[in-house]
């Protein structure tokens, strides 16, 4: 997968309430594991939303495998899944298996094929005992696994994840980290859990709407720490 940002800027609001969150970002991403770090409000979330066409930039272009996010949003979202921070907000259907199946409701696949795919994912993520349960009764970690399963059911080529472990305890965060490491897909992961980035190919550090460091994990994390505390 090839992601290109060409001189991308983004501003929310206008007039006196205008807030520029990305400033003239140009990037080409082709690696399989890309990390995104930076403090709250640095532009990470906006950057991730650009990739899935949840946000269209106010200037510049975002191209994913040659598709322009401003025009081909629908096709793009088929290729790129998005995992949000709060699993509660992205669970759409009442029960676990219904929610996993949701992404396939207009796929034209036969109910048997859909069921088979749902079952595979339930087993893979250890949710098979909860298939018919109401989604809201799952634990936090299980909810995030459910959200991930629901994204994976459409077999996207890449996954964009916006701080998927921020609301989880350390054990569940590590568990999600292991699941993410095993994915075949391209992963673009924003996180505050820096140890999740071990083994990543490339890490971007955002600060005030710009990419201020772009390096392998160790160097990028060092730059990030220095940014937060110049004394260190």
């Amino acid at each position: 997968m090839r992601i290109e940002l060409e001189r991308v800027s983004h501003t929310f609001g206008d007039g006196s309430t205008a807030r520029t969150v990305l400033r003239d970002v140009t990037l080409t991403l082709t690696e399989r594991r890309i990390g995104v770090i930076g403090h709250n409000g640095s532009g990470k979330s906006t950057f991730l939303r650009l990739l899935n066409a949840l946000i269209v930039p106010t200037s510049g272009r975002v191209l994913v495998d040659g598709l322009d996010t401003a025009r081909d949003a629908r096709e793009l979202r088929r290729r790129i899944g998005f995992l949000f921070t709060d699993p509660d907000a992205q669970i759409i259907m009442p029960t676990v298996s219904e929610d996993i199946a949701f992404g396939l409701r207009r796929s034209g696949l036969s109910p048997e094929r859909v069921d088979a795919r749902v079952r595979d994912l339930l087993v893979r993520f250890g949710l098979d005992a909860h298939a018919g349960h109401p989604a809201h009764l799952l634990s936090g970690g299980q909810k995030q696994l459910l959200a991930l399963a629901a994204v994976l059911i459409t077999k996207p080529l890449a996954l964009v994840m916006d701080e998927p472990t921020t609301l989880l305890d350390l054990r569940n965060a590590a568990m999600i980290g292991r699941v993410v490491a095993d994915l075949d897909q391209t992963v673009i992961l924003a996180t505050h859990h820096l140890d999740l980035l071990a083994g990543f190919d490339r890490v971007l550090v955002f600060h005030e709407g710009r990419v201020v460091a772009d390096a392998p994990p160790a160097a990028a994390i060092a730059a990030y720490r220095h940014l937060m505390d110049p004394e260190s």
């Binding site: 949003a73 629908r74 979202r77 998005f82 949000f84 509660d88 759409i92 949701f102 992404g103």
Partner: peptide
Amino acid sequence: READALGEALVARGID
């Protein structure tokens, strides 16, 4: 606020 997040999730999951 939750509705905003849910709306975004609906878009991300193909209801656009």
